[in-house]
Simulated scan of single mutants.
Amino acid sequence: MDKIEVGEVFTISDENEEELEVEVIGTVTIEGTDYVAVSFVEDLQEETDEDIDIFFLKVDQDGDFVAIDSDDEFEKVSSAFDDMVSEEE
């Protein structure tokens, strides 16, 4: 699998098949599985004090991004990204 870089932009489809551009804002590997934190490019380009939406996606064996489908897995990934952000501050 190619290394996913922070700042990489790609397109995802929402539940209505509308294509949205997202940018990778962080990556983490937990127990051998790669995860990315992404946010909408449009939100990142706007200069605002409002919080931006961040989504976590799992990278499967084929290098494709897939949704995290278990609450336990989501909590584990969310916590790992929170720890990363805390270390950077």
Rank of each mutant, 00 (worst) to 15 (best):
F65I: 09
E15H: 13
T27H: 02
E47P: 00
D64I: 05
D60V: 09
E89L: 13
D82G: 09
F81D: 10
T11G: 04
E73T: 13
E73M: 07
Q45K: 08
F55E: 15
T11H: 02
V59I: 09
E89G: 13
D83Y: 07
I25K: 06
V38W: 05
E21P: 00
E88K: 05
F40P: 00
D60P: 03
A80N: 02
E21G: 01
A37E: 12
V36H: 03
T11L: 08
F56I: 09
S79N: 10
V6H: 03
D71K: 13
G32P: 00
E21R: 07
E73I: 05
V9S: 05
F65P: 01
D71G: 12
D64M: 11
E87R: 15
E5D: 10
E8V: 03
D49S: 11
I30G: 05
K58S: 14
G7E: 14
F81M: 10
E46T: 06
E19V: 10
G7C: 08
A37M: 08
V59C: 05
E5R: 14
E17W: 11
F65S: 06
E89Y: 08
V77N: 04
S70G: 09
I30R: 06
I4Q: 02
A67V: 13
M1V: 15
D51Q: 12
T27F: 00
I25Y: 02
V59N: 01
A37K: 08
N16I: 09
E75C: 03
D72V: 13
E8M: 11
D64K: 12
E19I: 11
E8P: 01
F56G: 03
E46L: 08
Q61S: 15
D2E: 15
K58L: 12
T27L: 07
D60R: 06
L57Y: 14
S78D: 06
V6T: 14
V41N: 00
E23H: 00
Q45A: 08
N16C: 03
V77E: 04
F81T: 11
V85W: 08
